[in-house]
Design a binder for these strands. Sequence first.
DNA 1: GCGCTTCGACGAAGCGCTTCGACAAACCGT
DNA 2: ACGGTTTGTCGAAGCGCTTCGTCGAAGCGC
Lengths: 351, 351
Amino acid sequence: MATMQEVAQRAGVSVSTVSYTLSGTRPVSAATRSRILAAMTELGFQPNAFARGLASRRSNVIALIYPAAERGLGGTVAEFVDAAARTARGRGYHLVLWPFGMDQAAQIRDLARQGLADGILLMEVALDDPRVECLQEAGVQYTMIGRTRRPEGRPWVDIDFERTTHDAVAHLAALGHTRIGFINHSRASLDEGYGPTIRAQEGFEQAMRARGLTPLSRHVDESPRAGRVATAAMLAAEPGLTALITMNEMATFGVVAELAQRGLAVPADLSILSIVTSPGVGDMTYPPLTTMHAPGAELGRLGVEKLLSLLDSTRADTSNALIPCVLEPGGSVAAAPAPGARADDGGGRPN
Amino acid sequence: MATMQEVAQRAGVSVSTVSYTLSGTRPVSAATRSRILAAMTELGFQPNAFARGLASRRSNVIALIYPAAERGLGGTVAEFVDAAARTARGRGYHLVLWPFGMDQAAQIRDLARQGLADGILLMEVALDDPRVECLQEAGVQYTMIGRTRRPEGRPWVDIDFERTTHDAVAHLAALGHTRIGFINHSRASLDEGYGPTIRAQEGFEQAMRARGLTPLSRHVDESPRAGRVATAAMLAAEPGLTALITMNEMATFGVVAELAQRGLAVPADLSILSIVTSPGVGDMTYPPLTTMHAPGAELGRLGVEKLLSLLDSTRADTSNALIPCVLEPGGSVAAAPAPGARADDGGGRPN
DNA sequence: GCGCTTCGACGAAGCGCTTCGACAAACCGT
DNA sequence: ACGGTTTGTCGAAGCGCTTCGTCGAAGCGC
């Protein structure tokens, strides 16, 4: 690997001039610049990141902490990562992912304090998240993706689960639905204080009650199998159900399968609205699902921008961002059927 | 952030002694060591990664290049990342993920040459992969997860698709199945030279022919919907089908749903063997799938070990590793039904 | 033509660590 | 008691950059 020294020699200039050419911090004449650039290409020069980081005390790297082991890496996360990486790159930063588990707060703190990253994006923030305290006390710049229970005074961006569930209920209510069920994430996620599960649950119940409707919901494990079981149970409990809001992709596949097996037509007999959905999931079933697409890309972009604004004190700190999911029309939502009009009222199996 | 200088002062020793205490490169008396360690704790010292890297020309970081945007981040990858991170950590390295796309070979090369990582793990290697050439010419240590068309002389670890498909066919054949179908990944993946799709296809056909059986297979898009359609088509083409090997998780959900709807019992009427499967997927359906679990964790561990052996020239280079998937008994495979015994021969819908 | 500013380039001082050579002090056998 | 090791520690020389202060040369108005 060629060093700046060698580039300078070859171009017949001093090291500092090479440095200024690279950073643009001070003017360099066009002639000199082109000699230097030529020398760089000929030598295949790439600046040493450590020397640069040591001298400038900035790494131009932002780290994304994501517990890959616990949560898999779904489509929404992929969208997030991609958008975040692009945004960072556009601003001259590299985005790297640190696959730490939720319980490795101390290791995160130590690594963060080694200076390898200028700032940190913390994903899958739980309501009470020890990692946040660690970063705070480590004196590292960070931005949460998600929110702790009381996020005041800490930088974050998050999905607006309240608004998303409200919008979902409103959309269905406007189509005449009154018996609306909600299939949420697993009880395990609830128990461990997973924000989305809790906030969406509250949002759904509130939205239903605000309309004088009775909220019916279940926490369901993330599998098609669990989705089928839950669907059967909900139909048994509330035979008049005409719409389901789901926030659990794997379970949603099961919902669709179970309804098909029971001879219930989607959306004629029962509407399905899948919320906080990964890209592409809508087209995986027939009819294609009507979804409210999780704003992964938007979140990634805003998260990086917020973090960078923190690093660069000259840039105004944009306020925290709460982004709702947007409705993507599909074929699984329609007006509520007239009472008693359904082919198979009561929910028995067709054969 | 406290520096080594400050630690040395507080402990009343020289900087080099502090350094030796940390690295263990030279002996330090117990008394001195404990004074130094105490000073470190009091000051909350964390060595500066840049200074360390600059002086030692090693980063103790290995980078995992994974195209998060293109491929989502499924369970197998999560397992891989987790195992790789653990293995690396156990050897004193940090594992970071660089989310570069398949087409960003030049950027990968440049970043790699900046020295931020001692070695690189390249995932999702295609048969003709420009990224491999880039890393090679950049003079960076790397190990491929997967193989190029002609991987000779390049370090890699991969799933043994040939053996896995052979084992799958053998397992079913031993149970009396002769009409065996294969549901592979999408045609798009085939067209772009995705190794697993191609190697598994060849393996399946070879294994079938070796037994005098006729291979029946389809490339199917990664969705439950496509799985249903493919199932219907295969049953139409070969009504005598008694077993399906699937290497496409999303499609597998569709297969299960379609069979259920047709009133075909799994495994009594038709066996399903899901190969190269992510953890947990088997339990997502009923009956739970019999799977051949992708060795993600094993691959992660071996990949890191291979890479580290390359970095540390004293360690013998273990030869390239080809790891088969292992059979995980479930409830979706049984002996072939007696000919004509099936409830619904011919494939019509039950109702 | 004079002092003035502006422009472009240089040299050197670090950044915080690793590592090498050197060297007292303690330890050994004889 | 004496040379020869060993043991524990120190000082200093970098690693390859950034950045600050400096300074000659060119450009300016009058």
